[in-house]
Design a protein around this nucleic acid. Structure first.
Lengths: 342, 342
DNA sequence: TTGTACGCGTTATCAT
DNA sequence: ATGATAACGCGTACAA
């Protein structure tokens, strides 16, 4: 595809050709007021003609930053996360920033490695959603210590008071559970992720509180833990619970995939949804309106969370004295998206 | 989260403290054979103790590259693309490369802008899937001319002979259509993307050839063009076609989303799938096994394509004389993934 | 308004 | 086995 020609034009080339100094070129190119109109115009014209492009590598070194935002997530190919990234990328692009992406594959070790790699790449800020098993956050402390601010999104650390964007997970868990209770359900199963993760812990707490406030006993056999909350794991969880002497009459799954896996199983054994088992999921992924019956879910504004996380990052970056900033926690409200499954 | 302390340790700091020269430190750090065991060990120990991290910005400038791969896609939050990216990222990580991501939002203008931005960022290679309306590829010629090799994946240019990874779209279109014909269908609708895009053009050609070889006339009213092949557009397309005096008895949709939109509509008006209208999609997205009945589709190895594209990029990068390389076209075969919808 | 000179941190070349 | 020096390209303090 075309000829290759690595000799890139520099400000020195332009300077020589115009018989001015490189600094004049440098200044003219960024519309420095102290450079004459004539000169500026001439420089720009030649730059365009010669196809001059600034060497970002040199500029980065000189300015000690990369104009890049790092994004570290468990997996990019999940509906919620890919939309989150889409929101981040769109905002970043508009603000003139690049986006460097890495996935942890939900592994703590990979998270540590990649955090270091991103910091080494001198990203100006790091937007992070934690790996499932992460309970030690010291690698992020290291990042901040080295001058890379961190904004957490969705899967945020326990007891964290720094910059973060999330939903109100406790309330979401409470509301989802209450929604099922309001529809007459008494034996409500919970599909949860690791309780070491704050988001799942909070949803669990909301679930327990809702049951308690309605005088419904907590039954441990109805609480299923799952590593990844995949479709397959959802199937496995419900299969186990349907064998109980008194099986659940409803399921609150803390993501949609596991709910859908369970629904598929329930349908396959001839039980009716929602009559025999009602379902409510979380995230409101597109698949909710594809399954039959459509899956009730809790809203989860992925793109918006991405935009907000990026905005926070930008604010930190542009603050001259990052030390004195007050950290911001954005906690978004969710609501039930009612559909036929409950 | 911890104290901030921007003063980063450099090889000069280490050199001074150890009473050696910076070059010795630099060499020791990368296990240069000419440095004594003792010295090397001492340097590494101190580096670790002082928390030394190389300044990638400086290294990049010196080496004239960024160790980064640029990825330019229409949207990151689509099942096929997010999985493609996942494959690229995983391989890149393993090879020690960063991944810079940008989306074109299927706009030609944005594609041009972002290509330039990525080239300016000195990515070492660009992996691109074209925007829907792109028919002029000169911005990629510019990229190559400036020394940034380009690998296309999935949505590749027309009549291109450079590096690219794709599926055999003609054969895929042919096989999908033949599959419906084999099941006795005569009036087979096609849901296509823009025919200016090679992938849709090839699928269209395959569709036409299959009909022709089976003596079935081409009916223009059964060929639907769609801008984004979204669920909504699928619904709209089938709604129009069902009004025909002789409506289609099958649909070949060139992606799964549009097929599913159409299936939802068909079910909503009380027609049966596959008895009244059979369906086959493309990509084999997860949603195929969520819809009822499950959607037959054509396989589309997204993660594998990502890995292959990255490998091609790496080969080009590591080739010393890129000029003389022969370009590689990888064309993967697909197969029908049969399910209940046809 | 423009030019000179230096530094950002690393690495490669050449010398010792 | 180690050191001195230059260079990558840009941006800016200081000088003119």
């Amino acid at each position: 595809m075309g000829q290759k020609n690595n000799k890139r034009v520099t400000i020195y080339d332009l300077a020589k050709e115009l018989n001015v100094s490189p600094s004049t070129v440098s200044r003219a190119l960024k519309d420095h007021t102290s450079i004459g109109q004539e000169t500026t115009k001439a420089v720009k014209a030649l730059a365009k003609q010669r196809g001059y492009r600034p060497n970002v590598l040199a500029s980065n070194l000189r300015n000690q930053h990369s104009n890049t935002i790092g994004v570290l997530v468990p997996w990019v190919n999940r509906p919620f996360i890919s939309t989150l990234i889409s929101g981040i990328e769109e905002s970043a692009q508009r603000a003139g920033y690049n986006v460097l992406i890495a996935q942890t594959q939900d592994s703590y070790e990979t998270e540590v490695t990649n955090t270091k790699a991103l910091v080494d790449s001198r990203v100006q800020a790091l937007i992070v959603s934690l790996a499932m098993e992460t309970t030690d956050y010291s690698h992020f402390n290291d990042a901040v210590r080295q001058g890379t601010p961190v904004v957490f999104v969705d899967r945020v650390p326990m007891n964290y008071r720094g910059n973060q964007v999330m939903i109100d997970n406790y309330q979401t868990g409470y509301d989802a559970t209450q929604y099922l209770i309001d529809r007459g359900r008494k034996r409500i199963a919970l599909f949860s992720g690791s309780l070491k993760q704050k988001i799942y812990r909070d949803r669990y707490d909301g679930y327990v509180a809702a049951l308690r406030n309605n005088g419904i006993p907590i039954d441990e056999s109805l609480i299923g833990n799952s590593h990844r909350l995949s479709i397959e794991e959802g199937t496995a969880l419900i299969a186990g619970m349907l064998k109980l002497s008194v099986p659940p009459d409803a399921v609150f799954s803390t993501n949609d995939s596991a709910a859908i896996g369970a629904m598929k199983y329930v349908k396959s054994v001839g039980k009716r949804i929602p009559e025999d088992v009602a379902f409510i999921g979380m995230n409101d992924d597109p698949m909710c309106t594809i399954i039959t019956p459509n899956l009730t879910s809790m809203s989860h504004p992925a793109a918006e969370m991405g935009r907000l996380a990026l905005r926070q990052a930008l604010e930190i970056i542009t603050q001259p004295d990052a030390e004195t900033n007050t950290a911001i926690t954005v906690r978004l409200n969710t609501k039930v998206v009612p559909r036929a499954s409950s």
